[in-house]
Design a binder for these strands. Structure first.
Length: 88
DNA sequence: AGTGAGCGC
């Protein structure tokens, strides 16, 4: 079982590893992905982190939501299901 | 560059 976390308002300097290490403090990070704009190759300023359990995810959310990271106070919350991919 | 939701041609 795993729980996905949505992380918004990230600084553009944050990358997958930085996020992963940050959340690893509260549990096992299964995966982490900072969303990069395909057209500009720049961070979109938000990301997804997958923790190994909802317990750990909840701890991480409560501990990290609103805290500064990369110069911005990030929004951390449970992720919603992934949107269907556009084929165009 | 900023209120946003990910993948894979």
């Amino acid at each position: 079982m795993s729980q996905k976390i949505y992380v918004g308002n990230l600084g553009y300097s944050i990358d997958d590893s930085a996020l992963s290490e940050k959340f690893a403090e509260f549990g096992t990070v299964q995966s982490s992905k900072v969303i990069i704009d395909r057209d500009t190759n720049r961070s979109k300023g938000f990301a997804f982190v997958e923790m190994s359990s909802a317990i750990e995810a909840d701890r991480a959310i409560n501990a990290l939501n609103g805290t500064e990271f990369g110069g911005r106070a990030m929004n951390v919350s449970e992720a919603k299901p992934m949107a269907p991919k556009s084929r165009y």
